[in-house]
């Protein structure tokens, strides 16, 4: 294989793996933000989900049970964030960072005994069975969670667009006055959207420990939970675009390691930063004073 193909294969493989946690966290963040609230605590949810998923898989022997446990742990942390933010005058940006700290701390606290032992991992679907090159074969071993995430993106898109509950989420997110006029309980809708969003983020965390990189340690997350906020802005609060954005961000993150396979070891941090520069450029180019970003929920604190 030529250098270009090697890089391409390695990048596709990396993108499929690196993007999955991004995908789940950004979908969760997207749902929460569509209800009019921002959750920076998803970073803590991600780490806690990784730890709980790993520990559950280790004790029960079933990685699938680990995913369920990670989602539940995420939901609990989401309930803390959603519940406290329902109180008047509590700032959701600051509370998110506090929840991030608490979630990370709890994960490290209980996760210490699980750094050494190895837990059963999720299976991978060998989509590269047709290829002869071993690199392509290993590149196309895709986690079922990736497909679950893509399915979740479509499901969330349909939920927001075509269901009664989804319409309620959008109303609460776009105009609290309209929601009050309709007699909707704003706090309850936002609480449920935060809990569900954090459960999705928890699943994203379980991917980190149960599939790729596939172990539990304290340096597992590289800030994907916080980056999800930028990613959702990039995706204009659209779940389908979130999937695309997750692939782009994942590919950018995978570019460095894949360039290393052909001996290019310099400059990959700059590629890694490229999607953020792009996000900023898009923001600066499309926003004008007095006009909100297209697709941005009107009630979002970061929109005012």
């Amino acid at each position: 294989m030529g250098a270009l193909e090697t890089v391409t294969v390695a990048m596709v493989a990396g993108a499929l793996r690196v993007s999955t946690p991004f995908l789940f966290v950004s979908l969760g963040e997207c749902l929460t933000e569509r209800s009019g609230r921002i959750n920076l605590g998803n970073e803590g949810v991600l780490v806690l989900g990784a730890m709980v998923g790993y520990a559950t898989s280790y004790h029960s022997g079933s990685p699938w049970l680990g995913i369920v446990a990670a989602a539940l742990a995420g939901a609990v942390l989401g309930a803390v964030h959603g519940g406290t933010c329902s109180l008047a005058r509590v700032n959701d940006v600051a509370m998110g960072i506090a929840v991030m700290l608490a979630g990370t701390g709890i994960a490290f606290f209980f996760g210490k005994p699980y750094v050494q032992p190895s837990a059963p991992q999720l299976p991978r679907i060998p989509l590269g069975f047709w290829a002869t090159a071993p690199q392509v074969r290993s590149a196309l071993e895709v986690s079922p969670l990736f497909f679950l995430g893509i399915a979740a993106a479509f499901a969330l898109h349909w939920f927001l667009r075509a269901t009664r509950a989804g319409l309620r989420v959008r109303i609460v997110g776009d105009s609290a006055d309209a929601a009050r006029a309709l007699g909707l309980s704003i706090d309850r809708v936002r609480l449920l959207a935060t809990v569900a969003g954090s459960a999705l983020a928890g699943i994203g965390g379980s991917f980190l420990s149960l599939s790729y990189p596939g172990s539990w340690n304290e340096g597992l997350s590289s800030g994907q939970g916080l980056m999800a906020v930028a990613l959702v802005v990039f995706a204009r609060w659209n779940p389908l675009y979130c999937a695309v954005a997750a692939l782009i961000f994942g590919a950018a993150g995978a570019l460095g390691p894949s360039l290393q396979t052909v001996g290019v070891t310099k400059g990959y941090y700059l590629f890694y930063a490229a999607p953020y520069v792009l996000t900023l450029v898009i923001l600066a180019a499309t926003v004008r004073p007095g006009r909100a970003l297209r697709g941005m929920p009107g009630e979002l604190s970061i929109g005012r």
């Binding site: 940006v93 906020v229 930028a230 802005v233 953020y276 923001l283 006009r291």
Partner: peptide, 14 residues
């Protein structure tokens, strides 16, 4: 430009 400062500063931090 009216870009939200919370998002902009987070992205710039990365």
């Amino acid at each position: 430009r009216g870009v939200n400062e919370t998002v902009a500063s987070l992205v710039l931090a990365y």
